[in-house]
């Protein structure tokens, strides 16, 4: 290679590698900063990890402060699982409808709307929840309206487009001839859908859609915070107010003094969120690998 070529080739490769390496740098510094702050609750402020993860009393301003974050952890898991339980059948059902039952208007109307809704900002979902779901629950079901159920419903609507559009992709990947062979052998449409499409061919893809939806629900902050009521107690029913890790951070990060035990405890919650992100990624990779086999 001549000098000139070597220089431009090296330049191109070098500068693009630099850009790509920035991604690693950002990821590492996020892990480092969040972990160092989040762990100082336990190492600097002497809060016990067991208390943080299993304690149910949250009163950081008391003396000595109580740092039981279980209500937040429970709240986060409850809204996530609740939303997934509602959104999974609805989203997958809608995806089957769009691909198998009514591809005509299903694709022309439902799909663009779903794609548009994936992009709607989450505050808008929260605000609609605040002005529609909360008063509806208050007037028709009872309680304050601000409740675990309200959080679940808002998140359901929020992740429904994600689950639907990813499920649609998964079902679309099932080869046409597999379906036609099943129908030709005399199976009804539903048998074909259930046995061939759902159980055999696209199960990993559908699971992935649900996990992606759950990851989005677990990390959502503002939409949940606006409707869930924000009481640091483990809820005894769906209609009681609750709290999540994200809403605790949202509400209190600005009102606590940096470096205080209270503030550090919020960083610990951030660290928990970060760890859960890794769990979701591992799950997605695991399911994805299953799908290839």
């Amino acid at each position: 290679m001549r000098q000139r070529n070597w220089r431009t080739e090296g330049f191109g490769r070098g500068i693009t590698l630099f850009c790509a390496a920035i991604l690693i740098l950002i990821t590492l510094s996020i892990v480092y900063f969040i972990a160092s702050k989040g762990l100082s609750t336990f190492f600097l402020n002497g809060v016990s990890l067991t208390e943080f993860l299993t304690g149910t009393t949250w009163n950081p301003d008391a003396d000595p402060g109580k740092f039981g974050a279980l209500p937040f952890i429970m709240g986060s898991f409850l809204v996530t699982v609740g939303a997934a339980l509602l959104a999974a059948p609805l989203g997958i059902g809608a995806a089957i409808f769009m691909v198998e039952i009514q591809p005509g208007w299903g694709q022309k109307i439902l799909q663009p709307v779903v794609e548009l809704l994936v992009g709607i900002p989450s505050v808008v979902y929260g605000f609609v929840g605040l002005s529609v779901i909360v008063p509806f629950l208050r007037n028709n079901v009872g309680g304050l309206g601000f409740s675990l159920l309200a959080g679940i419903l808002v998140l359901t609507v929020m992740i429904l487009p994600t689950v639907t559009s990813l499920s649609t992709d998964a079902i679309r990947r099932v080869p046409r001839d597999l379906k036609e062979a099943s129908l030709a052998l005399g199976a009804t449409r539903w048998q074909t859908i259930w046995k061939i499409i759902i159980l055999r061919s696209s199960l990993p893809g559908l699971l992935m859609a649900i996990i992606m939806g759950m990851a989005r629900a677990f990390g959502e902050a503002l939409a949940v915070q606006m409707v869930i009521g924000n009481t640091p107690l483990v809820p005894k029913s769906l209609l009681e107010p609750a709290n999540t890790l994200t809403s605790a951070i949202t509400l209190n990060m600005g009102n606590t003094i940096a470096g205080s035990a209270y503030n550090n405890a919020l960083w610990s919650m951030g660290l928990l969120l970060l760890l859960m992100t890794f769990v979701f990624i591992l799950l997605i990779r695991y399911v994805g690998r299953k799908g290839q086999m």
């Binding site: 996020i30 969040i34 990851a215 990390g219 902050a221 994200t246 949202t250 951030g270 992100t277």
Partner: peptide, 8 residues
């Protein structure tokens, strides 16, 4: 980075 909660 693309699946990190935005609050984090």
């Amino acid at each position: 980075l693309s699946s990190l909660p935005s609050i984090v």
